[in-house]
Amino acid sequence: MRFHTRKWVKPEDLNPNGTLFGGKLLAWIDEEAALYSIIQLENQRIVTKHMSEINFMSSAKQGDIIEIGIDVVHFGRTSIVLKSEVRNKMTQEKIITVDNITMVNLDSFGRPSAHGKTKIEYVKDRILKP
């Protein structure tokens, strides 16, 4: 699992129980999945089609630093399927896992479009290509 983004849990991110609001965390995961997909598929027209079961394992509180990890499960013809894990940066305790997040590549008309990708590519390797 590669952890790309860190978030600092602030007062505006909390629920009435004083812990990180699940909806806020899911929004952060969705954004991270979209950004990862945009970079991998080299297209800004990406939408979330599906999120599998979400497993909340622990909570985060104000002041915690969390990190969001994303990995590719597989590349489809028009989609990329990802998995995500969020953990507390300091304790390494898992906060949430999502096994499947399906992101779909769209054309300029908003229709699913083949992306032609079959493996993870890193931007540094694209830049070095002749």
Rank of each mutant, 00 (worst) to 15 (best):
L20I: 09
H50A: 14
F56M: 15
L82I: 15
R2C: 04
H50L: 09
L106Q: 07
F109K: 15
S108C: 13
S79E: 09
S79K: 08
T102G: 03
G22P: 00
L106K: 02
I70M: 10
K129M: 14
L82Y: 02
K49H: 13
D71C: 12
K7W: 13
R6N: 07
A114E: 09
A114V: 04
E42T: 08
L128H: 08
P112T: 07
L35S: 03
G22R: 13
K61D: 08
P130S: 13
E53Q: 12
G69L: 02
P16F: 10
F56E: 11
R45N: 02
H74S: 12
D30Y: 11
L106S: 03
N100V: 11
H74L: 06
I127D: 00
R2T: 15
L14G: 04
N100E: 15
S58H: 11
N55G: 11
D99F: 02
E12K: 10
N43Y: 11
T48P: 05
Y122W: 08
A27M: 06
S108M: 11
G110C: 02
V104L: 03
H74P: 05
Y36H: 09
I96E: 00
E12R: 15
K124I: 06
I127Q: 03
Y122Q: 14
T19E: 12
K61I: 08
M57Y: 08
M103F: 06
I54H: 05
A114M: 10
L35V: 10
F21R: 03
R126T: 07
A60D: 04
N17V: 10
I54P: 04
V47I: 15
F56L: 07
L26R: 03
L128K: 06
W8H: 13
D64H: 09
S108Q: 05
L20E: 00
E121Y: 04
A34C: 06
S108K: 11
V47Y: 04
H50Q: 12
D99N: 08
T48Q: 10
K89A: 07
T118L: 09
L26W: 01
I65L: 09
K24T: 12
I120E: 14
F56R: 07
T78I: 12
S52W: 02
S52F: 07
I38P: 00
L25M: 09
A33P: 04
Q92E: 12
M57C: 10
L82V: 09
V81W: 05
D13F: 10
N88H: 10
T91S: 11
V123T: 09
I65Y: 11
P11K: 12
I95F: 06
V123N: 06
V81P: 03
D71Q: 08
M103S: 14
H74V: 03
S113D: 01
R87I: 11
I39A: 15
N17Y: 12
Y122K: 14
S58A: 13
I70H: 01
N55C: 12
H4V: 08
I46H: 03
L14D: 07
L82C: 14
N55I: 14
V73F: 09
S37Q: 04
L128V: 07
M57R: 11
V73L: 04
S79A: 09
L41V: 06
M103Q: 02
I80Y: 00
I29E: 00
H50M: 05
I54M: 10
E31Q: 15
E12Q: 06
I68P: 01
N105G: 01
G110D: 07
L128F: 13
N17Q: 12
